[in-house]
Structure formats: C-alpha cells, structure tokens
Amino acid sequence: MTPESRPPIPTEGSGRSVQDYIDERPVWADATPVHHGPITNMQWFIWWLAAAGKLFEGMVVFTTGVALPLMAKEFALGATEKGVVAAASLFGILIGAATLGGLADRYGRKQMFIVEMVLFGIFTVLLTLSPSYLVVVAALVGIGVALGCDYPTAHLIISESIPSRIRGRMVLGAFGFQAIGALVGTAVGFVILFENPDVAAWRWMYASTLVLAVPVIIGRFFIVQSPLWLMFRGRVEEAEAATERLLLRDPLYPKEVILHRAQARDKHHEHQWGEAPWSALFQRINLDRTILASVPWFLQDLGTYGIGMFTPAILATVIGASVAQPRNVAELIQSDILATKGA
C-alpha cells in the first residue's frame, strides 16, 4: 500500500510535507515560476536503478527462450520439462509480486530494494552452475521471486522520490525497460551462441546478466531511504535528512528541510487500513478498478511472455530453420542461432 492510499499523518506546528519539497519548482528573478523543476542526481540515480530491475526481467525471460533448446539437449528434457522451465521464472514473478511486495512497507524501501537484487544475483549464479534439471527450475523460480518482489518496490521507490507532475511518465518509462531487456537478452544470446557454439553456452547467457547486476546491487546501497516511508514511521529527523539528500543540488536548495512533526499513529485507523482482505478487490466498489487494472496487464503479458518467449522457436519454424530431431549438437546450435538472429 502506498502512502497516498493511507490516511494522512497528523501534524502539529510548522513545517511542510515531503511531497511539497519534492514538487517545489524554482522561480525566475521576477517571480515567474519555472514550468519544470530540475530532477536531482539522486532522483535520476534511483530511477535508473529501478529501471534496471525491469531490464533484468526482460533479459531473463527472453534468454530462456534462446537457452531452452540447449537446456533440453544437456538435460534430455521432454515436452513437459521444457514447459516447466519456460514457466518457472514467470511463476516466481507471480509469487514474488503477490506475496512479498508488502515487505517494503514493513522493512523499508531501500532495504528490500537491496535484498531483491542480491537474491537475483545469488539465484543467477546458482542457475549458471546448475547440475540438474531440478536445480535449473528452482533457480529460475528464485530469480522470478526476486524480480516479482521488485515490481511493487520499484514502483514505490520511484513514486515517492519523483515530482507528482511527472510521476506517471517516470514509472511507465522504467517499466518500459522490460522491452529493452527482451531485446538485449535475445541479442546477447545470439552473440554468445555465435562465439561459443556449445551446448553449455546457455550458462554464459544467464551469467552475462551478472555483469550489469553487480553494479546495480552496489548502487542500491547508496540511495536514500524513502522520506515518505520514514515519515509514516514517525522518524521525522531521519526523514528530514533523507529529503535533504534526495534534493541535493548545486546551488543548494532547499537550504533547510523542516517537515511536519508526526504524532502517534491512530492504531484503530492503522488496523482498519492494513487488514483489508484480498476479496476487497472484487467487491462492487472496487470491481471496475480491478478489471481495468488487471485486464490490460493480462493482455500485455500474454503477448510479451506467452508468445514473445517462444519467438525464436516460432521464427525457426517459419523460416525453415527448425529441426524436429537434430542429428547432432552442431545442427541444434545452428538452428538456435538462426532462430535467435531472426528474433
């Protein structure tokens, strides 16, 4: 649940809200307001690190489409096992997004932002070293859980750090990196297959994501904690320091951040807002919003994952490069290269 959906924090005395400071725009010498306030380096840094999570999602899912024929050869997979491998990361994303997204409310945006990417790196290493089919599936599910958990966290950390006038565009822009990741994953798969035509090449495809994941993990340690989350927790002094760091610019402005002082939270309201069951999404008052929010995502994911993941195999069949029963490894790899090149 985002801070916008919670009851406002009671305040006392003077001070402004975190969002007031984030949304503030400079004025010219004649007091004419500037239409677009500058985004600080920290705000851009947070945005790029959040977009990286979507990049990795696209890379992993589409790399699986390229790597699947090689995995099938190495582990002698049948049709059912291939389907499980293809769906494993998506199943993990479902679990992570649906069940673990709320951890950022409990433990903090920054903490979960780091943990998710660390888990992604650990399971990616496990995947590249997998000795068996079952370990491959477990590693892909783990990768999916980490990326799924990153869904709500990335959305929250962008929304709580960016001016409200451009919040929607920045969130959508970050999520658009999923498509870029799909292209990168397919391209990297092709290059690795071309340079290393071996059945084990699929391991290098997944390992290539670590080249980007390591600096992203390190970078997430250096972002600022969400000031809005700190305010909701009643940690006002920390929120003021975090807001100053978030909006640090040259020349320095604001020179001082003074936020509303939070009073003790109303436990009745906290319980009322925090215990809504899943069934509330399907109650009459929320049903239209649930449908309008979920159906477009379903259709988008159906095309992106349901069809996109198997684009290399589909293209291989269309262009006549698919071989139903490869006679040797070279024939299998050549078919995969042609399919990936077409994708």
Results as ranks from 00 to 15, higher is better:
A321H: 04
S335I: 02
L302P: 06
L94F: 12
I218Y: 14
I291G: 14
G92Y: 02
L252F: 03
A29Q: 13
A67G: 15
I95H: 01
E116S: 15
R25Y: 01
A182Q: 03
P69M: 07
A262W: 10
G148C: 10
W278H: 03
V224G: 10
E270M: 12
I46E: 10
G185S: 00
L129E: 09
T40F: 11
T63P: 01
R16C: 04
Q263G: 15
A179C: 03
V84N: 03
A316F: 01
G181S: 04
L315R: 04
E244Y: 00
G274Y: 00
R289G: 15
L127V: 05
F177A: 05
P326G: 07
I22T: 03
D20S: 11
A330C: 01
E331K: 04
A29M: 12
R235D: 13
T63M: 13
M117K: 08
F232C: 00
I180K: 00
A179P: 01
L172E: 07
L90E: 02
E81R: 08
P8G: 10
F310P: 04
V115M: 12
L77A: 03
Q43N: 05
L210T: 02
G185M: 01
F120M: 12
V318S: 05
L315E: 04
K54W: 14
E57H: 05
W47N: 04
I122M: 11
H35E: 15
E244Q: 10
F310Q: 12
A182M: 07
V295D: 11
L338P: 02
V85D: 02
L246W: 03
F91Q: 03
I217C: 12
S335F: 01
P163E: 10
A98C: 12
V18T: 05
M59P: 05
A241Y: 05
L338R: 11
R289M: 13
V188C: 01
M117C: 12
P33D: 12
V125S: 12
